[in-house]
């Protein structure tokens, strides 16, 4: 089977610092791959090469076996790669619908932004993701952390993503909301999406992921199936950088 995504031999330096040092990871349809590591291990940087926020110095990205070039977030979106950033990347002064469709606004026949249709679509997807969501006509700055998170998730899910990148999706959430994110990940997995999940919570990763790739100091320590290893093994990989 061809992997959905293969990032092969990726390298990126900032000044003299090797942020990513020839790392290779892959992802199959219907699979969740966790990216683990300390702060500064390079996991967010690696994934930003896939989402188009950074451009790698060398290496190749394959989507369904085809080599692709991703120079900016638009290229990534064109390949059905959606990202939920840790910061959520919402424009606080705009409402939920404007954020959901930001950069991909629905327009009327005259080329004007069709706010009513976007709101209707937003209401539809929110009814599925977060049925209690009511604040459609206020800036997202007026929303709670969980509500903001659901807007960010809705944005990623709405456009038929094939590849989903979630950067610390539960970092700012309470236990109830974390459980909802876990259910959503399971649901998207069933639909055949491939998901990269960045986290430094080992419990999360063991519960949600099929495989984990551990990074340390910009290098890949190793990739393991979660069923083959214990939490201690993974801890060893994160802290000591040694394979079990």
């Amino acid at each position: 089977m061809t992997p959905l995504v293969e990032m092969r031999d990726i390298a990126l330096s900032f000044g003299g610092v090797k942020a990513i040092d020839h790392v290779t990871v892959d992802l199959y349809p219907g699979e969740v791959v966790g990216l683990l590591g300390h702060n500064g291990a390079g996991k967010s940087t690696l994934i930003k090469c896939l989402s188009g926020a950074y451009q790698m110095d060398s290496g190749q990205i394959f989507i369904e076996g085809q080599p692709v070039t991703i120079n900016n977030p638009r290229d990534a979106r064109a390949h059905n790669i959606e990202t939920i950033y840790q910061t959520l990347a919402l424009a606080d002064n705009l409402d939920a619908a404007s954020n959901l469709f930001l950069g991909r606004e629905l327009v009327s026949a005259g080329g004007f932004v069709d706010d009513d249709r976007m709101e209707a679509e937003t209401r539809r997807i929110m009814a599925r993701l977060n049925p209690n969501f009511r604040k459609f006509n206020v800036p997202v700055s007026a929303l709670s952390g969980g509500q903001r998170q659901s807007v960010a998730i809705a944005r990623a899910v709405y456009f038929n993503a094939k590849i989903l990148i979630m950067d610390e999706p539960t970092a700012a959430l309470g236990p109830h909301e974390t459980r909802m994110v876990a259910e959503l990940i399971a649901e998207l997995k069933r639909q055949g999406l491939g998901i990269f999940l960045i986290s430094h919570d080992i419990h999360d990763v063991m519960a949600l992921c099929d495989r984990v790739s551990v990074m340390k100091n910009g290098k890949l320590v190793g990739t393991e199936r979660v069923t083959d290893v214990t939490e201690d093994d993974i801890l060893g990989m994160i802290i000591l950088g040694k394979k079990p």
């Binding site: 188009g52 910061t87 424009a91 002064n93 950069g103 606004e105 932004v113």
Partner: peptide, 25 residues
């Protein structure tokens, strides 16, 4: 300001430049 993408992007960029760039603007 209200009914074009250009206007929408102006306000989005003003609200959060980083988010606007990550949205492909």
């Amino acid at each position: 300001a209200r009914r074009t993408r250009f206007g929408r992007y102006i306000f989005a960029t003003g609200g959060n430049p980083e988010a606007a760039a990550l949205s492909g603007i």
